[in-house]
Design a protein around this nucleic acid. Sequence first.
RNA 1: GGCGGCGUAGCUCAGAGGCCAGAGCGGGUGAUUCAUAAUCACCGUGUCGUGGGUUCGAGUCCCACCGCCGCCA
Length: 632
Amino acid sequence: MNLLKFYITTPIYYVNSEPHIGSAYTTIIADIIARYKRLMGYEVFFLTGTDEHGQKVYQAAQQAGKEPKEFCDELAEKFKSLWKELEITNDHFVRTTDDYHVRTVQIFVEKMIENGDVYKGVYKGWYCIPCETYWNEDEVIRDGSSVLCPECKRPVKWLEEENYFFRLSKYRDALLKHYEEHPDFVEPDFRKNEMLKILEGGLKDLSITRTTFKWGVPLPRDPSHVIYVWVDALINYVSAIGYGWDEETFKKWWPANVHLIGKEINRFHSIVWPAMLMSVGLPLPEKVFAHGWLTVNGQKISKSLGNAIDPRYFVNKYGNDVVRYYLVREISFGKDGDFSEEKLVGRLNSDLANDYGNLLHRATAMVQKYFNGSLPRPSEGEGIDNWLKERYFQTKDEYLKLMDSYKLTEALEKLWLFIADVNKYFNDTQPWVLAKENKMDRLGTVLYNTLETILKVAIMTSPVMPDTSEKVFGRLSFDAKPSLEHLEEWGVLKPGSAVKHGEPLFQKVEVQNLKKVVETVIVEENTITIDEFSKVDLRVAKVVEAERIPNSRKLIRLVVDLGSEKRQIVAGIAEHYTPEELVGKNIIVVANLKPAKLMGYESRGMLLAAKHGETLRLLTVDGDIAPGAKIS
RNA sequence: GGCGGCGUAGCUCAGAGGCCAGAGCGGGUGAUUCAUAAUCACCGUGUCGUGGGUUCGAGUCCCACCGCCGCCA
């Protein structure tokens, strides 16, 4: 195994919705770790991608009126382009619909079967037909004698389906042993403890195929079965690096050094995936790191809200580096945290603009003024210079140690304590007084030392703020590829090289100007956006036929003209309107409502009516307009 | 319901039996003027969630309770 290789992964993101700040967070953190390892001299493979199979994706595609593959192509593109905008340096982007992945999944699962870890059994559980979702006994809602779907609240059906099962239970002891021998296998430790509890409680075998839908990887020996999305998805970590199709590359990178994940998928990564690897005889990843969740301005990221908060909003406004710095610095890595624009601006103003940016600014200004923009040569140092150097080497050691153990927040904290010390050094040596007294030699030494420390800071922060570090390197005419060696030695900057004084690195933002913005970002839970509203396709429809549905007290079957087509709609208005009254009326219907069956009649749409007590009146338009006219 | 975690300064959090309980941010005062009104120094008695208990001594250990959260069922 090449000791200097580093393989890091993010989860592959499920494409039933667009990327939000949560997926961006995971990916940015992974990018920071990847960049850090490259800086340390590792050869890095950084993998991310999309998870595209499964019934939910299929449904989402249907709702969007698209073929699943076409739908996935579009969403995968959205993820790719967001990562590009965020300057994510992933080495590959895996999609579970990629051919090599599909083949690898089949090879992997076949191997599990060959090794005797899969058997045919009967899956028993509740199934919600409209939602196409399976629910466990503990998930369904019991309302008297009826059993309801927790999502749509409609009755669920008891289902017994023949499936293939993975003998997960068989690996309990081996997993426990692995946890014991590798105490850092799962981090943070409280997440590990949760996993240990599950293991100690015993494992149930896992159903790994489905027969109720087709959008997935078929099981080669029994193609009526499609492989369960989670099994399919987890295999991306080996398919992307060649398992089953490029053994050499695969051997180079596997096992992964870290799977970076969100806490909600810990069980799959820390129990199911390791067991699958054991089953096919592969070594386990070195570490699974489960980070926490973000709230945004104190609110949970729900699907609707999450989409409202596009990470691009903040990046466009403040720049990548500021957002990245904020995420690492403010949200203690591993725990839950809140993404608040106000706090981001606080960090930008105080840490970045005042402490860091201004330090560079004041130092380069003096080199410009007193040394004509040419870096002075330092001479023999004094006590305070040695103190500065000592503080630097101490900080560097702490920083490396913390970064190596994924304590990103603390690493930055230490770095900023050091920046405060550099400011103190600058203050205490009073270079402006030295200039007045014409002590140019001493002045040169102070400025050199200050800029040398800024270079170190720029190198150490380059994984987090790559663009800013590039700017600093430019100002200091440092054109080497930054590396660990540049951190280990003092005196990297070459006297005589050009020092450029320019615009401040970071522009401060007034907090007063922020209020409005924060308000626009917060979406009240009981309000909807214009986008959400526009999803509802409201149309004017002319009723062309109407009749009562036999044996129903309330229902009337209508045929309405929508301009481009005629449709059947079933409505519960028989107690308020007679069929004769209805024919010829221009009514308002929801044209893109999911079709439903009422008393055996399909209804493709819903008409709108106002109801008050016992009175019900249909909505109609003021005056005449063509059937099918869109309402907005 | 079971197991676990958390509750400490206005905010974010650190501290895990023992001198006056800490840091950063915000706020205040002073110094300074090279710099983006920036930097540096100084300034915090806060029921350490509540009530009991153990101990010479408890944010720090034990028990109960309240509130929030996580995992599992």
